[in-house]
Design a protein around this nucleic acid. Structure first.
Lengths: 231, 231
DNA sequence: AGGTACATATCGGCC
DNA sequence: GGCCGATGTGTACCT
């Protein structure tokens, strides 16, 4: 990895056009040739970047650019798309190279999978008499998070989200449409369950006859760990 | 901005739990105290990070950690949430501080908002006699990009995208379904307008009676003022 | 390889 | 500040 601190201006042409006026920034060149341009603020997203696979070429400025104070021009071109990043370097303040080696990578412990496990164990939170059929019930277009039955034994398909957005309602709608064509399952009722449900998602869901359930994650976790369940 | 190359392991606890085993990485400490941890590959997203507002504290390892080779422990805590990032530093290979100043920021061109503004001004591109009713026409499930009327005075809902994908057709379909239940608006015709429309999106749109219009952004910008827009 | 679902998303606009 | 839509989304997982 090469770290360069430089006064530079940047132009990007690809999905959109973008320009960074002259200022001092960090240029991070990774081992695969990709480039990240960071300022001293903002979030983890760079001001501008080029993702791999790409190649970096260092060139000399034309006469006009040299006159304007440009010392070198970096051109980063993507190998598959026509995306191009041009860095006009006016002054290099720092330049160092470092050997990092391959990273073993991040080990995650997810959230939705945990929420799904908890709801499967506490399926009665959806209503009295509810019973779990199975998690990740496979359909032709993908897995339904939870399949259950209500007190009358009718099928209930549950779509689970951390944040309930319109996309999740669409997803559940597709599953319901498919499952309701299966005479062994139909009629299938839909339940949209999330820690938080956006008003627009709720409107769309209820308009389609899908019930919305807000889950209290901390409460569910509390029941799970230690305290015995009611039955 | 402080740049540190170090052999370290990292633990994150917050929305989820995550762990990075011991390896050599770049630690980028920004002026606002935020921290980014990058490996020498991957995309622009760091392996791990803490977004501002947050504070970084440097502490000494406990006996067990010291025994395991830990030289220092950085603890980054978010000021609002309970998110916490712990970096156990085994060896520092590089450490430098740089003054970057405030960045003037990115200037973008070619985004949907600009396209929307141009089409609102040049609504006749959809057909003779078309008139703009309003941009961002609010419905219960979200704003329709442009509401217009055709030569006969009938309502037309326009969904605008830079790249016309299936998602955009679904979005417009939801709006149309809702608006066509409103006797004051119905019947509402749909127009799917984009710089580029994917074949699958076009097929779906036309199957649903939605008209597809490909927009020439450069041409529209030229008509707009003759003056280059942002830079 | 292509498509789907998820994410510690981030960012900007508007109410 | 919250809500909502767009992003040069990136990433893992599946067929």
């Amino acid at each position: 990895m090469r770290l360069v601190i430089a006064r530079c201006s940047v132009d990007y042409a690809g999905r959109l056009s973008a320009h960074l006026p002259l200022a001092t920034r960090l240029l991070m060149v990774k081992g695969d040739g990709s480039l990240l341009i960071h300022s001293d603020g903002g979030s983890y997203k760079p001001l501008n970047w080029m993702s791999p696979p790409c190649t970096l070429e260092v060139g000399v400025p034309d006469d006009d650019a040299r006159e304007a104070g440009v010392d070198a021009v970096w051109t980063v071109t993507h190998k598959k798309t026509a995306d191009r990043l041009t860095v006009s370097i006016h002054e290099v303040l720092h330049d160092s190279e470092h050997e990092l080696g391959v990273d073993p990578g991040l080990q995650k412990d997810g959230v939705e999978s945990h929420l799904q496990k908890l709801l499967a164990e506490q399926i009665e939170r959806l209503g009295d008499g509810y019973r779990l059929v199975r998690r990740e019930y496979m359909t032709a277009i993908g897995p339904v998070d939870i399949l259950a039955t209500d007190a009358d034994g009718a099928s209930v398909a549950v779509e689970l989200k951390r944040r309930g957005d319109i996309d999740g309602v669409e997803q559940l709608t597709r599953y319901l449409e498919l499952m309701n064509r299966d005479p062994l399952l139909a009629p299938v009722q839909g339940v949209f369950a999330a820690q938080e449900i956006k008003p627009q998602a709720r409107t769309l869901a209820e308009d389609r006859g899908i019930r919305c359930v807000v889950l209290d994650y901390d409460d569910m976790r509390g029941v799970d760990s230690g305290v015995p369940t009611l039955f």
